[in-house]
Design a protein around this nucleic acid. Structure first.
Lengths: 117, 117
DNA sequence: CAACAATATATCGTTGTACGATAGATGTCA
DNA sequence: TGACATCTATCGTACAACGATATATTGTTG
């Protein structure tokens, strides 16, 4: 029941995370995954089977654009933000802040009401 | 595409909100919905078709327990936290904090890297 | 050199939650 | 009486995240 909580938590905020990574500069899937997992520690285990469809979705939405790189032996698909993607980060970050504020508004009195342990 | 973001955001954190409301005392569905919507403003539009299955799920999990009240003309199903429910709020609240900290860790440098507008 | 781990992208079926629509019942107020 | 708010509930749909699996290349180690 608790793994479920962790898993469902990421719905909707995962794309914001990926866009955030790309705000630091162009990047490709495998490294994006590493970066998110590094920051997320045991909280966020971003799967490849989640990330790649997510990237395709963001590209279809026009938030990012891609380019294959065959110069090295191992081919990589680089992604970078579009102007729309940058706008999207800003609006979604604002929404995220408002959303967490709502939760905090419910959570703070709740924890205070709970017996000390 | 932005409504999707709002909708998907709630996945996984909605049950924590409902549990939080119940931490302030026993309550019934309709009022729980009102409370969450009041706090949520335009961010959180909790639907009845979402809430009632959610309550049933929490009860099946043993986090809450219910009791019908027929004393008034309009019948109401009152819910209250169980001991397991109180534990669950504490653990999920801690997870929530850690999760939002992760997002913030990605978001802050991202917003700093973005052109001023 | 062979075996194995890491790098790199991708697809597929399953699961589960939130939504909107719908239903049905009671109470209040004009 | 008719409209509206209260109150609980179910059903089909949409869709994101998961785990498994596939495939291919590069690096490491016995």
């Amino acid at each position: 029941m608790n793994e479920r909580f962790e898993r469902e938590l990421m719905r909707g905020s995962l794309d914001l995370m990926v866009l955030s990574v790309l705000a630091d500069g162009a990047n490709y899937g495998y490294l994006i995954q590493k970066r998110v997992r590094d920051v997320g520690g045991d909280m966020i285990k971003l799967q490849a089977g989640t990330l790649y469809p997510l990237l395709h979705r963001l590209e279809a939405d026009g938030a990012i654009r891609s380019k294959w790189d065959h110069s090295t032996g191992r081919k990589r698909k680089w992604y970078e933000l579009t102007a729309a993607g940058r706008r999207r980060i800003r609006t979604q970050a604002a929404q995220w802040d408002r959303y967490t504020a709502c939760i905090q508004q419910l959570l703070t009195p709740a924890l205070a009401a709970l017996p000390v342990k």
